[in-house]
Nucleic acid binder design. Structure first.
Length: 477
RNA sequence: CGGGGCGUAGCGCAGAUCGGUUAGCGCGCACGGUUCGGGUCCGUGAGGUCGGAGGUUCAAAUCCUCUCGCCCCGACCA
């Protein structure tokens, strides 16, 4: 056995890296913190893109593309924004062999360049709302990087909208957060907690930030998507004004929202096991792999013919691959496709051809337990059923895991213990001091103030003062 | 930036403490055969500026100095 995946229990971090490298999702690039997204990983990203893009279009958004290079001065226009991003900027100082008059930053996010354009485009209330999304790469010079979770360059989408009223912009902010939540749960089979970020955790330049937070396999939290309400902050910095219906000059109200290739890291950590990836059927690049089994040339001919028919029948509705490679044994292929997380495997051998059946093996249920025979005539319906069942079961399993590792501490000591073992929902007075103390003592941060709140909230778990809200504390990526 | 680890064949490593002349092993790769219902087995073969620079020495993967890079753990972040 050439490569082994480190078991999760031994070293979760190494397991994560092993799975990504061996499943060929990505590989390290020559430049520190950068990675190559390999074809299999990119196919996964394309499926994520499609599923999201469909939802963006359905909510009235259009795609556009803004440039990679941004004049450095643009970043400085919004005080809080520049403060948040300057430490991690890549700056271009030379071009065409000459030093540039003004340095250009490689976008870490596109608020400034997009808003500079919005200032040109918006004149009247009739120009609003502007609902633009872009799929792009961005660069942030992070100190510590990790495949997919935090790379120097990453792919994402960023929606940037401008509205005539605060209410409308806030509605948009929450609508898109909800799109993310629905996407995560439906497509990724990943349950998430939606809520508002605390003032210290919010986006640089936003009035309010919202996020969806998911529990990874090591019980740590991962911010899987964010949506920001900017009010008129950026509009004032960039001079985005319009004449309202009363012929009054007014600043627009804005939002931005984004998810990144980090979602691939989330998929790995939410569903994967010691054998490798387990991909949710709705996003899996290959939903069904057919592994034919034969001994001699005659069997090979018969089996491959049957396998070809199975492939043809399923390909109308399913992303299916026939692995007819001669050079690998069936056992090798089983392991290989399990590592790559293909949700459903079809085995066809001489016995199956004889009995007009196939063997179906679920990736999410290892061993004999996950295997069943299926008569050839029931092929399409059974495969569809199983894929749907796997999708649902993955979600249910992830939800159960999160619930089993979620705690409701009443005291500070209980909180400290709880965040060692998972998510902790606890009353919080809202003060930065209490938030900082928890971080200092336990390394856990407030992830979000969930929308779903209990009927009654006790005193702040840190200081004992009255608390209005319950907050989610967790150690996070 | 602080702490730790590592750079020797495509990958994973041994060799270094105690310098010695053809630098090994496993996997992978190529070819031939064998096998195929859970990572078959056998044979043959190709493949190396020992991260880089400088120094010590009759002799350096090995000792010394400098340097570059990567990974992991922290502080920062999607």
């Amino acid at each position: 056995m050439a490569e082994k995946i480190t078991p999760r229990s031994e070293d979760y971090s190494r397991w994560y890296t092993d799975v990504i490298l061996q499943a060929e999702l990505a590989d390290y690039a020559p430049v520190k913190g950068c990675m190559v997204i390999r074809p299999y990983g990119y196919a996964l990203w394309e499926n994520i893109q499609q599923a999201l893009d469909r939802r963006f279009k359905a909510t009235g958004h259009v795609n556009a593309y803004f440039p990679l290079l941004i004049p450095e001065s643009y970043l400085r226009k919004e005080a809080e924004h520049v403060e948040g991003f300057s430490p991690e900027l890549a700056v271009v100082t030379h071009g065409g062999g000459k030093e540039l008059e003004e340095p250009l930053v490689v976008r870490p996010t596109s608020e400034t360049i997009i808003n500079a354009m919005y200032a040109k485009w918006i004149r009247s209330w009739r120009d609003l709302p502007i609902l633009i999304n872009q799929w792009a790469n961005v660069v942030r010079w992070e100190m510590r990087t990790r495949l997919f979770l935090r790379t120097t360059e990453f792919l994402w989408q960023e929606g940037h909208t401008a509205h005539a009223t605060a209410e409308e912009a806030m509605e948009e902010t929450l609508r898109m957060l909800n799109v993310y939540k629905e996407f995560a749960e439906t497509e990724m089979a990943m349950p998430v907690i939606a809520g508002q970020k605390s003032m210290t955790e919010k986006f640089a330049g936003a009035l309010a930030s919202y996020s969806i937070e998911a529990m990874m396999g090591d019980k740590r939290a991962l911010q899987a998507g964010t949506s920001h309400y900017f009010g008129q902050q950026f509009a004032k910095a960039f001079g985005i004004q319009f004449l309202n219906k009363n012929n009054e000059l007014e600043y627009v109200y804005q939002t931005s929202w984004g998810v990144s290739t980090r979602l691939i890291g989330a998929l790995v950590m939410v569903h994967g096991d010691d054998q490798g990836l387990i991909l949710p059927p709705r996003l899996a690049p290959i939903q069904v792999v057919i592994v034919p089994i034969w001994r001699d040339e005659e069997q090979k001919r018969v089996v491959l013919e049957a396998a070809g028919q199975v492939q043809a029948r399923l390909s109308a509705t399913t992303r299916v691959k026939l692995d007819d490679r001669d050079e690998y044994s069936p056992g090798w292929k089983f392991n290989d496709w399990e590592m790559k997380g293909v949700p459903l495997r079809i085995e066809i051998g001489p016995k199956d051809v004889e009995n007009a059946q196939v063997v179906l093996a679920r990736r999410d249920i290892p061993g004999r337990e996950g295997k069943q025979t299926c008569p050839m005539e029931a092929l399409e319906s059974r495969v569809a059923e199983l894929l749907a069942a796997i999708q649902a079961d993955l979600y249910a399993r992830a939800l159960r895991f999160r619930e089993e590792n979620t705690f409701y501490p009443k005291t500070y000591a209980e909180l400290a213990e709880a965040v060692e073992n998972g998510f902790a929902f606890a009353p919080w007075c809202g003060s930065v001091e209490c938030e900082a103390k928890v971080k200092e003592d336990t390394k856990a941060t407030t992830r979000c103030i969930p929308f779903e709140q209990p009927a009654e909230v006790g005193p702040c778990v840190v200081c004992g003062q009255p608390a209005e809200k319950q907050v989610l504390f967790a150690r996070a990526y």
